[in-house]
Design a binder for these strands. Sequence first.
DNA 1: CGAGACTTTGACCGTAGTCAATTTATGTGG
DNA 2: CCACATAAATTGACTACGGTCAAAGTCTCG
Lengths: 252, 252
Amino acid sequence: MSPTGATATGSIARPATAFAVLGGLRQADMNHIRSFWRNVVRYTAGAIVYAGRGSAGRRIIIISGWACETRILSDGRRQIFSFLLPGDAIDLARMSGVGSRAVMALTRLEVIDADIVAASQAHGDQDVAAAVAQALHQREDRMFDHMVRIGRLTAKERVLNLLLEFYDRLDAVGLTKGDTFRIPLTQEVFADTLGLSNVHINRTLQQLRRDGMIVLRAGSVTLHDRERLAQLACYEPDDHEQDGRFDSLRPQ
Amino acid sequence: MSPTGATATGSIARPATAFAVLGGLRQADMNHIRSFWRNVVRYTAGAIVYAGRGSAGRRIIIISGWACETRILSDGRRQIFSFLLPGDAIDLARMSGVGSRAVMALTRLEVIDADIVAASQAHGDQDVAAAVAQALHQREDRMFDHMVRIGRLTAKERVLNLLLEFYDRLDAVGLTKGDTFRIPLTQEVFADTLGLSNVHINRTLQQLRRDGMIVLRAGSVTLHDRERLAQLACYEPDDHEQDGRFDSLRPQ
DNA sequence: CGAGACTTTGACCGTAGTCAATTTATGTGG
DNA sequence: CCACATAAATTGACTACGGTCAAAGTCTCG
């Protein structure tokens, strides 16, 4: 393991693992994807993702795992700006890590250079570059939702709203099972995301559990009646246009 | 005045007014700018700025006045995402105004199509298109500062931090006089920007005045000892690289 | 001068923060 | 598989920051 937590993946890696998140693939796609195999870069949880590590360039696609964009103030306070889930893309330009902004792996993370993928337009009629551009746009759109969350919603609304966003995003890449999905976040991460203290997050979650609005245990969440929850949490999926995430690699 | 609040400026408008904010100009620049004259679009305070109104396109440059990006929730809560000051540029694409996002004039506003200006590279060695692109980037960078503000700072810090940002931005285009600048915002706008109630904004401002940290009256603010204030407000101007605002029209 | 928009004030409430201790996972080496 | 170390979740007691409601005072501008 390199000191930065990043490792270029050798031929040891098993395709089935890294790309499983993108769903079952047609044989043609599989062949196409295998060609990227040695371009996948891995990070350990807690690692900072820099541009240029391994074979990852400035624009990257998340293959598996969760990451976040964050800033840490000199006095220790931390704010998380956004989350990066499988199928998301981000431009690492101007990420400095210092007082400014950094992308941090929240779990083990697999990443690939977006330009390498885009350069080979072999699979289907999809325009990979366009899909990446769309993913970048959606990230920006979500940023506004997030500002509303921390600026104008109550603690309960913030938590629900965020969980609903996670559901929709994960569902779009096949990472939900019915109303349930896995969520690898500590309560402290929730706190630093939603502008609350970890203690208050804890109490809010318990309240939501007691009210039967969510089921949350052992790293997985279940959201029954999302329609109603969305109402309660001011969650208005602006129909963020088409789904622009990088699932052009998924079965048609 | 059109129903939307937008009017295309005819030849009646006086150059000296609209472009005064960009500072005194060399004779060559003045001539160049005169050619844009009929492309300036005006809005009244409170008007929504849409792409395509008058001669303004998708990417616009603020010539004079203040505007903001905002969203209004169905229950009336409002969040302001960013402010647009003279010299700033913004891409109006995907501004819907409805539940999503809108640009609203906070004062009388003068705007010009960025592409029209960029199309004529006559003045100096500056690359206008690059300056506009930079301005767009800076807007994004400031968005992160803003998330930290509403997510992690106290009320007092939020207010100071925002005022310091205004100072730096206005100073960059010559709109400060010593430690003082004009600020056309109501306390309610502050509230909806900083995620606080208007009443609390009022009390916070009074507190800051009593502590002698700011002077605020009749629409103008004075910030003495900004170094100290920056310290207190976690204001860390990340040295947002070069100054990429649209002041390439200003004297060299 | 009057209307409407903004600001200011007071009283009171409630959400969320802080500090500190305890319990419960999680994980690691033996 | 157990023992220990560490991280994470939970709880209680107390505080305080910020919200709400309602009334009164100011300012602007036609």
